[in-house]
Every structure is written in C-alpha cells, then in structure tokens.
Design a protein around this nucleic acid. Structure first.
Lengths: 341, 341
DNA sequence: CTGTTAGCGCTTTCAG
DNA sequence: CTGAAAGCGCTAACAG
C-alpha cells in the first residue's frame, strides 16, 4: 500500500489546463460551462481517478451541510432497531445522505457520548431512540439549527419532534383481548420501570384491568432468562395467573420457554407486546401487539429530512398505530371454574 | 430554530483572551499549556458550548484521518448483517471511530454507488460484504492507501484481506451428518448460484454426497416463499428426498413451512446453513450449521483498524469456523425401507 | 510555553 | 462563460 498522494481538484485543473473553479463547476454539474472545457475536465477526472472530497466541500459550502445524518439506536443488533435503521438508510440514501449510527444499550452516558461524537462530525440532523431521561443537554445544539427527531421514546425536558408507537393503547388492547376471552388473573411481565415505553405499557395494562394484584406483576426484567425465571415463579403461585401479558420481545420469549418447561403452553394464555420472527411457527403460535418499526423509521427520516430542508414548524408528535395479531396463544380460555362473565 | 452561528475556536480564543492555537492545544489535550490559560479556555468552551469541528480538523491534520470507517452490508435489517454491524461498531467506538454503513441488497450497482459515497466522505477504511464479482474498481483507492477487508464473500480481481466462514466445510459437515443418519436422497435448496457463498455450500453438499440427482437440486431461491414452493414440489416427487439441506436462513424457514404444510416435519430430515433465533423452539427444533457473524465482524474490524494504524503486511485470508448444532430436525431417520448402511 | 503564518481541498465572491 | 483571490475551521511548522 504505497501512499501516493490523492489527486485533488488542483491536479485535475492542471492536467485539463483549466482553472480550479472550472473543475469545481464541472464536478458539481453546473450547466454554464463550455462543453469543450467540460470534456477536458471529465477526461482528466477519469484519468486521475479523482474523487471529490465531500468533507472539504461541506466545510466551505454556504449551507455547510455534511450530507450525513446521525442515528442513535437502542441496539443495532436487535430486530426492532435494525429495521428502523434500514428504513432510515433508504430514505436518507434517496436524498444523498449517508447514515452514521450507533447503539446505546440503555446507557444514558453512552447516549451523550454518541451524540457528541456525531455532532463533532457535524451531522445535519439526529434521529434518537433515547436511553436517558433528560435531553436538555441537546438544547443548545438544537438552537444552533441541528434538527432532531425522537423515536420509540419521547424527548424529556426538550421540545422536539417525535415518532412513537401508541404503547398505552396497544397494551390496553392486548389486555382487553385477554379479558374478552374470560381471563381475570392476568399477569404483567415487563422491562425496567425507568423505560418510558415500559411505563406506558404498564399503564395500559393497569387501565384495562381496573384493579391490580401486585403478586401478578413482575418488572425490571431485561433478558429472556430473567423473564423465564420470573414467569416460572408466577406459574407456581397458589393462585396462578390464567393469562400473561408480556411487555417486550425478550420477555415474551422467556415466557414461551417457561410455559413450555411447565407444560402449560396450551393452558395459560399469552399476549406479547412487539412482534418477532417465527412467532407464527411456535406451538401455539404467539398472539402479539405488533409495532411497526419500519413505519417509525420512515416517518422519522422523512420528518428529519424535511427539517434539514428548512421546515421550521413547531415540533410535531407523530403516533404510529399498533396492531393486535391473533395467532392462538392469546385466545386460550381459562379453566372453566375460573372463567369470568 | 434560529440559525445562530456555531461558535468556532476563534470565538473561544477571543472570549478566553488567548490565541487560536492555545485553544487548539487545550481542546486536543496537549500537556504543555499553562494551567491558568487552560482554565480560561475550558471556561470559554463551556460557556459557548463549543464543539470542535472534526471534519475541519481532519482536513488539516497530518494523517488526514476522518476517524470514520465504512461498512457495506448485504442488508442491515437481516440478523446476520445486524450482528456484524454491532461488532464492528463496538470495535470502532473503542478506538474513537464512527461507522458509516449501508445495504447492498445483492445489487452490484448499489455496491459501487455506496463505495463512492463512502469514499467521497473520506472514510479511513472499508469493510465490505460484496454484492459484485469484480472489485477491480477499488484498486486505485486501495493503492492510495485506503485499507479494505472483505467479509462473508471473497474479493474478486483484487488482492485484499478477507474474513469468511468456512462455507464448504460447514456444508459438507451438515450433509455428512444427514448421511450418517442413514439418508441417501438428500435434496439441496439454495440461493442464487451467482453468490459465492452459495457456490461454496453447494460444492460442500456435492462433495459429501459424491453423486448428485439433479431432480433433488433447487437453486436460485432468494425468499422464504420461493423456498417454500420449491420444497413443496420436492416433497411431491415420485421418489422424494428423505432429507433436506438448506443453504441459507430464509430458505430454511421456507422448508420448515413446507414440511409443516405437508405434515412431514417429523418424517423428513432438515439441516440448514446459518442459525436463526428461536430455531430451538420450533417443533421439531431445527438442526443447523451455525456461522459466527459476531466473530466475523470482530475480526474484520480488528484487522481493518490495524491496517489503518499502518500495518502493511500482505493480505490475509481469515477463516471463521462453523459449528453443527444438533437440535432434532437433522437427526430424523429415513423410513426403514429406504435406509442405507 | 505561546503566538504567528501558512494552507488542508474546496466553494464563494467578484472581477474580467 | 471563466479565473483570481479570499476564506470555511482547524492544525503544522516555526518563530518568539
């Protein structure tokens, strides 16, 4: 790997026998250039394998755009984040933007570090699935004109755009579905209570149920293993739940495992928040409230790009509907003696 | 969103009453600065909310590093790519690099466009899961000193580092496993024959089997739906296969569906290349040859970062082992009358 | 230890 | 339609 010097516009200009500015015009597709000179320039570009340095260009350019947007995800490896990533990428690419992304792993410190890293690189806008509960540290940046759209969870202590699932509504729908099948003892299994979406989904569970038996509530479950253990305990109660509402993907999977280990997968009903691959191939197939991460990603990207384009309306809060998908596990009835209605 | 001017080092220098260069020194953590002046500078930085412009810095800086690497994936939304992404991100972040990624969707044109977009942004290196079969277009860039590591599929017409699964070996192991359980009529279901990994895995299948019945080979299946249809046809043959070897994730899932639709999931054996979530929760659980995408991502990132650091050894080809995971579907025996050995 | 000068690669004036 | 000069925000090189 010899370190030759990378050709610059200067080199192209010299080879083509024109001025630097003419090269700049041709490279940027200006129309008012003598076709003869333009031809010479293009030939020189090809011969030298010249690649414009977009970072230098954006430094000098009037609008100062880097043509790059920042995307802060919970974890790029999880399917929810990954499908948001993909939609954002597609929308961005279509308009010539590249995507600089990173994962937060529920760590507020990581959120601030990543934001700083992206901002040092002068991204033109930010899409944030936040881990922290205080976004005031972004206010100055926002005032400087960097637009930001929050996804999955709302901004706190900052007025900004958001694109969120209707978490409360979706949870209520799932629990009401279980109630309509005759269940009264419905357990809640969910993630960290400090997570905004978990709070909302718990609120939806609570409001559908009216009164809550604290014995049936297991919170702060963050992995499938934790959920499996918690679920196993619930099933061993003297008066066990006849149905489970699981607040999150990994928790749902933990429940599936625990039910199966107890041989109860056809006795105890299960409805989970968030869909997952192959849910329809499990036995029984798993009933879920599906979010629409692709739609969230698309809407967020479109909104951000409009903001970058100069849209200065006040912040908008967009809600993306959830959808109950009945597959079997949520339509199991309780034992006859325990049936309500 | 008022468009105030973003503070620059000049502004910080003016407020702190020092020279621009002193600010630069403090911001870059130089030690040889009078603590009193450094304090003034830090106060000014905080007061103005100054953020260094890394793109300007890298323009001037000696090494010209953008502290950004480019990552070209098959599809950021699929779990294999997503887990590579995550490992690369972690390795990059640890050394202060950011990741600019994009998806190729098996489109060679998209590969070239994305490479160009990343190179315009002066990424310091490239990790490429290629879609094309000719990478000579990158030679000039490589000679200019941009290191590149190919993953999942090898570079073509270009000498470069690579980190690949042992596709052939893994396929052979899977098919030999089926043979050891008494199967002789083993079908192959796989993706586009132009994809290098599919070629390797087919070669592994062929070499394990010795002789091939073309009736049992279904290729160019790219979606679960196509695979399901192809699998259904195979099951309806006069002399149907007693076992299936599936070359790829989505194909495996198509097979699972087809087997289930035919009620044959406990009669016909199935071994798939590439693991997937919940494979162990299906009925029967699916036997696979697992790749190790995390390991591929980690190795590729480490290698690339070493190259960026100046390592100029000649290209190395790294192989990451696969692992046969016996879960049940691959251990089904053929009907007695058809049993070999 | 600090400041001045030059200039990274490019685009913006603004004059020819 | 073209080019020369200036400068984006920052750091290298050198002088004080």
């Amino acid at each position: 790997l010899s370190d030759l010097a990378r050709p610059t516009m200067r080199d192209v200009a010299a080879l083509a026998g024109v001025s630097l500015k003419t090269v700049s015009r041709v490279v940027n597709g200006a129309t008012n250039v003598d076709p003869v000179l333009a031809g010479k320039v293009r030939r020189a570009v090809a011969q030298l394998n010249f690649r414009p340095n977009q970072t230098a260009s954006s430094l000098r350019r009037g609008d100062g755009r880097s043509m790059t947007i920042g995307l802060m995800l919970e974890d790029a490896a999880n399917p929810f984040s990954a499908s948001i990533y993909r939609e954002v990428e597609d929308a961005a690419t279509m308009q010539g933007f590249a995507v600089l992304a990173g994962s937060l792993d529920e760590d507020p410190a990581r959120e601030r570090e990543l934001a700083a890293a992206l901002l040092r690189r002068r991204v033109d806008g930010l899409i944030i699935a936040p881990a922290s509960e205080d976004h005031s540290y972004l206010r100055h940046e926002q005032e400087l004109g960097t637009p930001m759209v929050f996804i999955d969870r709302p901004p706190r202590l900052l007025a900004a755009d958001s694109v969120l699932s209707d978490n409360r509504e979706g949870a209520t729908a799932a629990v009401e579905h279980l109630i309509s099948h005759g269940h009264r003892r419905i357990a809640y299994l969910g993630d960290f209570t400090r997570i905004a979406t978990a709070q909302e989904r718990y609120a939806g569970y609570a409001s559908a149920l009216g009164s809550i038996d604290p014995e049936l509530v297991a919170q702060d479950l963050h992995t499938a293993e934790e959920a499996e253990a918690a679920c196993a305990s619930l099933l061993e109660l003297d008066d066990p739940p006849t149905a489970l509402f699981s607040e999150q993907n990994l928790v749902t999977i933990g429940c599936v495992r625990a039910l199966r280990a107890a041989g109860a997968q056809h006795q105890v009903a299960l409805a989970g928040f968030d869909d997952f691959a192959l849910a329809d191939l499990l036995e029984p197939p798993v009933t879920v409230v599906a979010q629409n991460p692709a739609e969230i990603g698309r809407r967020a990207a479109e909104l951000l790009l409009r903001r970058i384009d100069g849209d200065e309306r006040k912040p908008v809060a967009t809600t993306v509907a959830t959808r109950l998908i009945e597959r079997g596990s949520g339509e199991i009835s309780p034992p006859a003696r325990l049936r309500s209605t």
